[in-house]
Design a protein around this nucleic acid. Sequence first.
DNA 1: TCCTTCTATGCAACTCGTTGCATAGACAAG
DNA 2: CTTGTCTATGCAACGAGTTGCATAGAAGGA
Lengths: 188, 188
Amino acid sequence: MALEHAILVSLLEKPGSGYELARRFERSIGYFWTATHQQIYRVLKRMESDGLLGVREVPQQGRPDKKEYSVAGLGRAALSQWLHEPIESESVRHDLAVKIRGAAFDDPSALIHEVERHRQVHSDRLAHYLAGELCDFTGPEASAPPDAGQELQHVVLRGGIAYERMTIAWLDDVLATVHRLGASRPRT
Amino acid sequence: MALEHAILVSLLEKPGSGYELARRFERSIGYFWTATHQQIYRVLKRMESDGLLGVREVPQQGRPDKKEYSVAGLGRAALSQWLHEPIESESVRHDLAVKIRGAAFDDPSALIHEVERHRQVHSDRLAHYLAGELCDFTGPEASAPPDAGQELQHVVLRGGIAYERMTIAWLDDVLATVHRLGASRPRT
DNA sequence: TCCTTCTATGCAACTCGTTGCATAGACAAG
DNA sequence: CTTGTCTATGCAACGAGTTGCATAGAAGGA
């Protein structure tokens, strides 16, 4: 279970409430890890009762009070231990690949629309990443020497960019293949 | 839940028992979908009682009898319906990206070993895919015109190959970045 | 004024997925 | 002769993740 560790990293980067974490999981961290607010609140509570996190009630004006969590010594130790353990898996779940193979037993025109839709999603996401890269990592380029945290965030983002580019090229390959099949073998 | 649909596709490609499906999920289909035998047996039972699949008891010699499942009309209809629905998500879970960002708060040497290990895994997997491609998709190239199912399986495999290549290149980028950080900023 | 949206937290119920364990016959190696 | 591996199926328990719903004050627009 790495959700705990993702939360530890995020809170080390900047302390925050469950709500704020949920927002981060929709953005920067969400590029490579998804979580709903339910999961986050539940796990935060458990981590706090396990002594991994500290809480601080922060009263606010014009909006509800929030609980700001930060990483305690135990939490930092737990993260460090996890960083030194090997991890496995990256369990793959590619619905689209299932669909592509399934298209052999069905009308391929539905597949074409689906693939085009996915291509659009990945294309938009790529544009979003590139905009974020411009904004976050090329602004004060000559000014401050970028710190380690920034460099590491940047290389993760570059991974996202490479993934989207690769995916778009592959989806084009899929489209070309399906069209070729449709042209050369009009009957099912 | 697309496990049902992955099973339908696999059984359409070739009927088989739960055990055989589990083996396939370790290989070809496992390239883009993982499932344990527990999940498979449980889902097969449910799908059969829902009328999506038919069963046939096959006695065998020298080994236990097996239940060979095949797709019933209802199952085929369910698959067809799913193929015509849009799907979302591809929910991302990249433990390694969490670790990379976490390395900003820890000794990066552990990260280097981990990244090198992953690079090896992906490199092996790429070699495995390429061997599979040679074997399955370039053998009788000029002889028979490849059918739609084969072409679609091939394009899925090409996706896996592109993914591994991209990942290896990215891991090299990660390694270069971490080394650069270690060289330029020897103190934490 | 009412409706929606945003911040902020949480419960309850459910499904999905993993892990550990059990059975059981056949076969091969030590 | 015992141990281990392969085929083949399955139960029980747990943990992870999703969905629906609820509360509640503040702000802004129709």
